[in-house]
Design a protein around this nucleic acid. Structure first.
Length: 451
DNA sequence: TCTGGGGTCCTAGGACCC
DNA sequence: TCTGGGGTCCTAGGACCC
């Protein structure tokens, strides 16, 4: 439990994380608008660099709209391997502050400093946080914003206050005055719907919310949300920082470039996604009892159909079987925009699953045919370029020109810029997209020792 | 503007059990 | 024969987060 009189909870948040990694590794993009996200017709923005934000581009915005706002930005598909590696390095540095680290995503975590430091005050927290920010910059070349306060709520709000590249430590005595004038939307957990409800009830600021009637809030928002929000507004947040939270579900989903109506087509996509889910379960040593199929229709209405088994499974065959039967209960005639599969009710891998997996290995398909990945005939997800699959932003290597990255592709051509984190801005060359001298490559390695 | 993919948590109703 | 209250599990949907 955290001490409400000491600013011992820290929230760290890498600035424009995905875009910042791209700018770090691609010198030609530094100081320029960079957008990472889905690059196809139905893609949305995952992260925009601050230069891109100046054009009004933000997270969750359809990429099509972002392109209209800033046609000259670099639109990149994302390199999650590279992001995971940077994240791992930052979390490692966070663990040097305290053993109590709670990652929220690749680019965010809470750290409870009081688990490692007995006598904390504002000055001590400030020094620790500044050292940490310098260490992150030295190790990864990235900037991180840090907030600190007496609770998760305050630490999280603080880290956002002066982004990017900022540290804000909120002395507990000043917390109330800081929060009171802020919009209720500042509270994590208050989104568009809750925010509108509160504003319509005349509760625009955290200060107003703090003075609200609990019964009224509970009627408006439900028991859990109503009581928690009122407590937050009054500066009460008893949530502890929890290291190593266990996964509750594993899922895969895909939005198609074009709505699908053919059941066999959908069943085939479902099978591939179920295979990925099964592989991830197995890799994590997990199995689960509930199989869920998610269907988003042409009109964006979304359905879930789930089934709980008598035993936990991680078998691809069993997940596919159940998912397919669930999909059979859904009307797909009008068009399916997104399909997904998930497994929840997780537990540690069991002996029965090991046996089931052995059976899978012997007899991978119900009809005895070996499982093979054949190219699908019908519309590829995310439109062109489907053919050899050069993705914008992708790391590549050319036999003659060395390491570089894909700027764009189409009409049988790929354009590559040859540069890396420690080179000057590189030259651009265009190749046939089946040029055998060009191959996908691992992400470049950022070297902290390099000038 | 036309809406990704990976998750978490909460609510509500019905079945079932004691 | 009719009627309890509480607890747990399951399913479906929805808000929200990065």
């Amino acid at each position: 439990m955290t001490d409400p009189s000491v600013p011992g909870v820290v929230h760290l948040d890498l600035d424009a994380f995905f875009a910042a990694v791209e700018q770090r590794d691609k010198p030609s993009l530094r100081g320029k608008p960079v957008v990472v996200g889905g690059t196809g017709g139905r893609g949305v923005v995952s992260t925009a660099s601050y230069e891109a934000r100046a054009f009004g581009i933000g997270s969750a915005m359809p990429t099509a709209r972002a392109r209209r706002l800033c046609p000259n930005a670099a639109y990149l598909g994302g390199r999650f391997e590279a992001y995971r590696e940077v994240s791992r390095q930052v979390m490692e540095l966070a663990h040097e502050l305290s053993p109590l680290v709670e990652p929220l995503s690749l680019d965010e975590a809470f750290v409870d400093l009081s688990a490692a430091h007995p006598d904390l005050d504002v000055a001590a927290v400030t020094a620790i946080a500044e050292d940490f920010r310098a260490a992150v910059r030295a190790r990864t070349g990235l900037t991180v914003s840090v907030g600190a306060g007496a609770s998760k709520l305050v630490a999280k709000i603080a880290s956002d206050l002066r982004k990017p590249d900022a540290l804000v430590v909120v002395p507990p005595a000043e917390q109330e005055d800081l929060l009171a004038p802020m919009s209720v939307r500042t509270i994590p957990g208050v989104g568009a719907v809750t925010g509108d409800r509160l504003v319509r009830a005349g509760l625009k600021t955290i200060g107003a919310l703090a003075a609200a009637d609990e019964g009224e809030l509970v009627r408006m928002l439900g028991k859990a949300h109503g009581t928690a929000l009122l407590a937050f507004a009054r500066g009460i947040d008893p949530r502890p920082v929890v290291a190593e939270r266990e996964a509750k579900s594993v899922s895969a989903e895909e939005t198609f470039a074009v709505d699908l109506t053919d059941r066999r087509d959908l069943a085939e996509r479902l099978r591939r996604m179920a295979d990925r889910v099964a592989a991830r379960l197995a890799a994590a040593g997990l199995s689960g009892r509930t199989v869920t199929v998610k269907v988003r229709r042409y009109d964006f209405s979304t359905l879930n159909r789930s089934r709980t088994l008598a035993h936990a499974t991680s078998s691809a065959r069993e997940i596919v079987q159940n998912a397919t039967e669930l999909l059979d209960t859904v009307d797909v005639a009008d068009g399916v925009r997104l399909l997904g599969v998930g497994v929840s009710g997780l537990s540690e891998f069991s002996q029965a699953d090991l046996l089931a997996d052995l059976e899978d290995a012997v007899e991978p398909e119900a009809d005895g045919a070996p499982a093979e990945e054949e190219p699908l005939e019908s519309p590829q997800p995310y439109g062109p370029p489907a053919a050899p699959g050069w993705r914008p932003g992708q790391d590549v290597r050319h036999e003659e020109f060395g390491p570089g990255w894909v700027q764009g592709s189409g009409a049988g051509r790929v354009t590559v810029r040859f540069e890396g984190p420690h080179t000057p801005v590189g030259r651009i060359r265009t190749f046939r997209d089946d040029d055998s001298a060009l191959a996908p490559a691992d992400p470049p390695v950022f070297d902290p020792e390099h000038p």
